[in-house]
Design a binder for these strands. Structure first.
Lengths: 115, 115
DNA sequence: AACTTATATAACTTGACGGTTATATAACTG
DNA sequence: CAGTTATATAACCGTCAAGTTATATAAGTT
């Protein structure tokens, strides 16, 4: 079941799991305790995250320890990139007006920061 | 139907619509032509985007012209923020090791950029 | 006003997703 | 090996989202 990274991260519990794994790696059991999810619930989400390349497992005795692999999130970051100019300064209104016209200058037109 | 910004952007057609509106504002009819969606399909997605604050409408004669309002995307950007360090340099392996231990130093430990 | 164009909305259908319970599998323990 | 702990998977269910068709609404035209 190949889902886009956007779909994967749309699920709040999965974002929560990633947030937890960002602090430190955790076993399935720990994740169950720290969330309100059942064990199979966690396992299902972990599978989705695994298939998206966002986590990796390591066997540690009886436990399976999951850790974050954040690289795939870069795709979201990249998608976001061309939108940043719209909020980075407060020139939103201006930008929006500019891109109503657009068509001509793709360069310049970016006023210097208020400094 | 209040959806999280993540859910809103999880839908590929909605991302496409935003991408189109990023270039320039468009009427519903134009969006129908430029995507593979039916007119009601587009209208439904536009409603979701409107409710998320991601687009705004303006009446222009018979047409309704939609334009981008990117600010709500900042929430995604902010969520992403603490993950960036994991891929920003190539110190991923190191970072991952550090946060396996963690627990002690929440500060420092961040090597300076290669500059 | 009748007609046309443009868009929104309602009603319905379908499929996928997330949760649950039950069970399989695997590792460790005595 | 029997028993326990840890986790994954299967099977099932309810919900919800997205697409479709039909229709309502609104603006423009003649």
């Amino acid at each position: 079941m190949r889902s886009s990274i956007f779909e994967v991260m749309a699920e709040p519990n999965r974002r929560r799991i990633l947030d937890l794994l960002r602090e430190r790696e955790r076993s399935v059991g720990e994740l169950v305790k720290e969330t309100q999810l059942s064990q199979p619930g966690i396992s299902k989400h972990l599978r989705v995250l695994r298939e998206a390349g966002l986590v990796e497992v390591r066997q540690k005795g009886q436990k399976r320890v999951y850790h974050l692999r954040a690289e795939p999130l870069e795709e979201i970051d990249n998608w976001l990139e061309p939108y940043r100019r719209f909020w980075s300064d407060k020139l939103d209104a201006l930008e929006k007006h500019l891109n109503v016209e657009d068509k001509h200058s793709t360069e310049a037109a970016t006023p210097e920061k208020k400094g």
